[in-house]
Design a protein around this nucleic acid. Structure first.
Lengths: 217, 217
DNA sequence: TAATTTTTTTAGATTAGTCTAAATTTTTTA
DNA sequence: TAAAAAATTTAGACTAATCTAAAAAAATTA
């Protein structure tokens, strides 16, 4: 049984590992966990002793198979609770993350399997991120950014790559929700902002900054 | 903001205070929290400094008004989560306590108020215990024990005074559930066991030990 | 490639919550 | 009511997770 802190380190290492081969650096972890590099060094030693990470001094870390399995189980719990909060308790998608950060550490396998059933075995959380299964396996979808879509193409909004409440609230105000259809009319030469037709109904200008963080298929 | 441990001490002091005027003793707390008296002494000093308990060395403790309010808010969360687990996730009433011991420490007022609404503002948890309101107030019902009911009387089962899984599973097997009607046919001279007619349908013999822990009105 | 800068680790403390053993206070008993 | 027993507190130590400051290693730069 692992502590809240250990679970959080595993989760953070998992997220920082996405899209790189190299190990995660001590400083990157210190930034993400709001601690100092010295504290991270200590913790890495302990996690390595427990066989959850591959760690050589000064070399950065990667998760072992077991470490990754555990990280994905925490992420599974986090995302299932997010679905519960959004769908059953009517929380906004900008509010669910903070609460799920606590709920993800509740220790009961039966609880999470029953919650999964209660929610109807959802495949995605409120931000469009996939939910790992009980074995700690997660499908990897490769979505494109709206900013990379060529003019004239029609796509569907499937996720976001930025999860801050400020960004999500901005999308709410713009009426951009998961599943909406987006036709890229024109990309501005001036500021790379994108003019999109939403659900064949109305046109909206999306800044490049926003377009970079919208995932589509 | 108080730690899990502090919240648990407050809750335990609250429960051990029920039905006595005197303060709760250090040893009683050590028993209930599975720690040693020395650890309890240390913690009592801290809780007293924070104004949550009235504490004089060697004299036992009582909760201050603020301490009681906090204890009742933890109990509110515990009992609401128990309702969620039993009614929405189909856990048995013998299983909900252990999981709610963790969930009760999740810190979000909005979460608990939304959960309350989602559950339809329940007044009682799955064991028949009343749920405190958001202000930390709880109605006090005085129920009698089945063992004190005179022959010929008909009552309704409203609660239990023993919450162990073993006891609750025993009641399940006997078919004794909250709300069932119990007519006391006869109390045995030999072993004080009670013969009861359940819901006007079938007769059951209930041991004195069980009858003492069944609350009725 | 030697010097400088950056990153990481080690050394030594700190805090919350716990422990055992010893000391102290209260309660019980004879 | 004095002695014995029980309950409680204090003293000193431990663990997990953190910190600052200093030392060491790696990376960058001139």
């Amino acid at each position: 049984m692992y502590s809240f802190t250990e679970e959080n380190y595993l989760k953070t290492i998992f997220y920082l590992s996405i899209g790189t081969q190299e190990g995660v650096s001590t400083n990157a972890l210190a930034d993400s966990t709001n601690t100092r590099a010295a504290s991270v060094s200590d913790m890495l030693k302990r996690l390595a002793e427990k066989g959850l990470i591959n760690y050589q001094k000064y070399r950065g870390v990667t998760l072992t198979e077991e470490g990754e399995r555990l990280a994905l189980l925490v992420i599974r719990k986090h995302r299932l609770w997010e679905v519960f909060l959004a769908e059953k308790l009517q929380f906004g998608w900008d509010e669910v993350h903070v609460i799920a950060e606590e709920l993800e550490h509740i220790r009961s396998e039966r609880l999470i399997e029953k919650l999964d059933a209660f929610l109807g075995y959802p495949k995605f959380d409120p931000h469009g991120d996939p939910i790992p299964n009980a074995a700690g396996e997660m499908p990897r979808f490769i979505y494109r950014k709206l900013s990379e879509i060529v003019e004239g193409t029609t796509v569907v909004m499937t996720g976001v790559s930025e999860h801050s409440p400020a960004f999500l609230q901005h999308l709410d105000k713009a009426g951009l929700t998961l599943g909406c259809q987006l036709k890229v009319n024109e990309i501005s030469d001036f500021d790379k902002s994108v003019s999109v037709l939403i659900d064949n109904v109305r046109t909206l200008f999306v800044s490049h900054e926003v377009a970079k963080n919208l995932l589509v298929k």
